[in-house]
Simulated assay, not measured.
Amino acid sequence: MSKPDYPVRTRRLALRPFTLADLAAVHSWQSRADVNRYLYGEARTPEETAGSLVNKAAVTWPEKEGQYLCLAIEKDGEVIGESVLKYLSQYHRQGEVGYVLHPDHHGHGYATEATAAMIDLAFDHLGLHRVIASCDALNEASWRVMERLGMRKEAHFRHNEIFKGAWGDELIYAVLEDEWRRMAVNRAAANGG
């Protein structure tokens, strides 16, 4: 396991650990009911956002099971969202990715680009074998990101939990390290690299 050098750069974005100076940016999406529609919890107060930001900033690299790496997604110096990598199992080499973007930045492929970078970190720096992602089945924008990444839909759990007062369905997607590496070779070949 090797901690990456930050920021992690993609074609259009920079991913870096959160700092307490990011409070206004984080609150700009955590305070919105529409952003929280498919997330556990509700829109947050400034004090609740500050508490969540302390937790995000505390882990700059997941060193043990259960830890979350939450990186700020920057576009041209502006924090527009977050990308998450949870270290699920050291023995089974499993992790989970997630993402949240401010709605002003939806529809530009930023979630896909940032999540691809997190999957690279999972395989290249954390040494994982398998990475999953999950979402509410009604959250089409989220599962479309997983499909654009080439993740395989492995499960559709019907009525697996009561979510915000109603039965909810959950989708599970996954990709294995060797599949991800093959896709990277194919992407490079398609781009003339």
Results as ranks from 00 to 15, higher is better:
49 T>L: 01
83 S>K: 03
128 L>E: 03
33 A>D: 12
160 N>E: 13
34 D>H: 01
27 H>R: 07
112 T>A: 11
166 A>P: 06
102 H>A: 15
62 P>T: 04
132 I>V: 09
174 A>T: 09
21 A>L: 07
46 P>W: 03
184 A>N: 15
36 N>A: 08
100 V>E: 09
132 I>E: 10
143 W>H: 09
165 G>N: 03
18 F>V: 00
97 V>G: 06
111 A>L: 11
130 R>I: 06
75 K>D: 09
41 G>H: 01
45 T>A: 13
31 S>H: 03
145 V>S: 08
50 A>Q: 13
9 R>K: 14
170 E>G: 06
34 D>G: 01
62 P>Q: 02
120 D>T: 07
72 A>E: 01
190 A>C: 14
167 W>P: 12
27 H>A: 05
49 T>V: 02
86 K>E: 14
183 M>K: 13
189 A>F: 04
160 N>A: 07
27 H>M: 11
64 K>F: 10
157 F>G: 07
14 A>H: 00
115 T>Q: 14
110 Y>L: 15
96 E>C: 11
36 N>I: 00
101 L>I: 09
187 R>S: 10
5 D>T: 14
103 P>R: 07
108 H>G: 13
178 D>K: 11
143 W>E: 03
143 W>V: 08
173 Y>M: 10
188 A>P: 04
56 K>Q: 06
81 G>K: 02
105 H>R: 04
188 A>R: 15
67 Q>E: 15
66 G>I: 03
64 K>N: 02
137 A>M: 05
